[in-house]
């Protein structure tokens, strides 16, 4: 646990001691608010729930997650510090979890930057607080899932750009799979594929949680997806070390 904490602090410092984290959080904040207010016409909807706000998040995470996670291992590979890190008396798991948690803190900070919209809906109406919590929970889990996917990809390559592109592509597929228009397109020809698309789609799970329905299926999918991606990362790191 102590090792995880050391790695976590080191990674967190690496994020916040250079402009990367700040730039990413600013981009996330501007994008999520801009999409909600300008594209989604939030104030014209006359609905004091944040459902529409949360529905933009999977699209943003499609880029934001990989942007946070791309440096987790690619940077170590490029600098040649992976070997050094793994020769220290810490297990690959501890390094992976420490790094992943640090990236999640950046994600949490980005989500925290959207608090003004919560204040706004409380000023303008009387929203359902629990539903907002559920939306944030879903948003955080989906963001964490995109980081975990990127973490596994970054373990494969030393190029951060390659990692970013591959991760964005995978996340894009996972978001799109359950998008209503895609599901409607698939359903007539392959209904099972449409159902599968829903089950693996980050967008579908987010849409359910944004309306206050946290399915055990969603929790199971997102947590196991994160765990599986972190496991893959450890396999890749071990195999590289071997």
């Amino acid at each position: 646990m102590r090792h995880i904490s050391i790695i976590f602090k080191r990674e967190l410092a690496a994020y916040f001691n250079n402009p990367l984290a700040y730039v990413l959080i600013i981009i996330f904040s501007v994008l999520s608010m801009g999409l909600t207010f300008v594209i989604g016409k939030f104030l014209d909807l006359n609905d004091a729930s944040l459902t529409n706000f949360f529905l933009f998040h999977p699209w943003i995470y499609m880029i934001f997650g990989p942007a946070i996670g791309m440096r987790l291992w690619s940077e170590e590979h490029r600098m040649g510090t992976t070997e050094l890190l793994l020769t220290m008396p810490i297990s690959p798991w501890e390094a992976i979890v420490g790094k992943f948690l640090a990236a999640c803190v950046v994600l949490a900070a980005a989500l925290l930057s959207t608090i003004p919209i919560v204040v706004t809906v409380y000023i303008l109406g009387s929203p359902d607080g629990q539903m907002i919590f559920s939306g944030y929970l879903g948003s955080f889990l989906i963001g964490a899932a995109t980081i975990a996917i990127t973490c596994a990809i970054s373990a494969l390559t030393r190029s951060q750009i390659s990692c970013l592109l591959i991760s964005v592509f995978i996340c894009f597929l996972l978001v799109l799979a359950g998008f209503p228009s895609v599901a409607d397109f698939l359903r007539p020809t392959a209904p099972w594929l449409a159902d599968l698309g829903n089950a693996i789609s980050l967008w579908w799970h987010q849409s359910e949680m944004a309306r206050g329905l946290v399915r055990l299926q969603s929790l199971a999918y997102l947590t196991t997806l994160i765990a599986f991606c972190l496991y893959l990362t450890s396999v890749i790191i071990r195999s590289k070390r071997a």
Binding site: L213, R215, A220, Y221, L225, A227, F228
Partner: peptide, 26 residues
């Protein structure tokens, strides 16, 4: 990896059969 992937799929298949959920609305 195959075993873990299998567990991942099995767990998700199992939960997809259930309609259990947590209702986060007032």
């Amino acid at each position: 990896v195959a075993l873990v992937a299998g567990i991942f799929l099995a767990v998700n298949w199992f939960f997809s059969l259930s309609s259990a959920n947590l209702d986060f609305t007032e």
